[in-house]
């Protein structure tokens, strides 16, 4: 048994509350593998913490009828404050209208500044990459924890994977041996280089039926000139293409 299989089983047994000692092969692996043994110990400890710390603290629960009075009063006060804010926004505008000549220069300057600072416009930029990977063996595709481990080893903690579909190939190709091949979608990859690393890792495991497609995610963003300048100066663009 390999470590990732052992970890899968441990996680599954933990979720279902199954006693692991009934699985001889797993117990044998844990006896011989200090890493998995440590993982098991931490897993049990964490589960106990969730159970002990997760009990409800039911002291001082306010009855819902009482809470309703409190919440509705606060909501009414909050909507009153919003009304005053609207009024104070209206007053200075009114004064400016009465002294147009004096205010003209100020208004123009404020408008230019406002356009630069507040008026948003739409532009596109690359926010990341996705990979569609077809022809992944079902056993690997279904092993989320192994895939997570692979991504973890590559330092890609933010990347997420989803199974889009699985097809059985013997129906399609008439082959004697029946394989089920799956289509995976990876998202939240920050650069094209990260995406290529994921593809090579999967190709190393099984490249037989694998086809992959890396796509940039182009997002239409609404932002002011100032935002855009900030992004350009502070962050290097994700995609130079």
């Amino acid at each position: 048994m390999q470590c990732h299989e052992a970890r899968n089983k441990l996680a599954e047994y933990n979720r279902k509350g199954i006693d692991i000692s009934s699985d001889r092969e797993l117990m044998e692996h844990i006896r011989q593998c200090p890493d998995c043994a440590r993982d098991l110990v931490a897993d049990n400890a964490l589960q106990k913490l969730f159970t002990t710390a997760g009990t409800d603290d039911t002291e001082g629960v306010m009855p819902m009828a009482e809470k309703r009075v409190q919440v509705e009063a606060e909501a009414a006060r909050a909507s009153g404050r919003a009304g005053w804010r609207r009024f104070f926004r209206w007053v200075p505008a009114n004064i400016l209208m009465k002294r147009p000549a004096m205010s003209f220069g100020t208004v123009v300057a404020v408008m230019v500044l406002a356009i630069l600072t507040f008026v948003p416009f739409d532009y596109h930029h690359t926010t990341g990459y996705t990979i569609t990977m077809e022809g992944v063996n079902e056993k690997l595709a279904g092993d989320i924890e192994r895939i997570c481990d692979m991504l973890h080893t590559m330092g890609l903690e933010d990347a997420e994977v989803d199974i889009l579909s699985c097809d059985t190939t013997c129906y399609l190709t008439g082959a004697k041996e029946c394989d089920t091949l799956c289509k995976l979608l990876f998202v939240e990859l920050k650069t094209r280089e990260e995406a290529q690393r994921v593809v090579s890792a999967f190709t190393r495991i099984d490249s037989k039926d694998l086809t992959t497609n890396i796509e940039p995610v182009r997002t239409r963003t609404s932002g002011t000139l100032l935002d855009r300048a900030n992004k350009t100066i502070l962050q290097r663009p994700l995609d130079s293409n």
Binding site: A11, D43, I144, E145, I147, C148, H152, E157, V161, D162
Partner: peptide, 12 residues
Amino acid sequence: AVIKTRLFRARR
């Protein structure tokens, strides 16, 4: 699948 991944990572 995404939820499972996130839970697995957080737990680890």
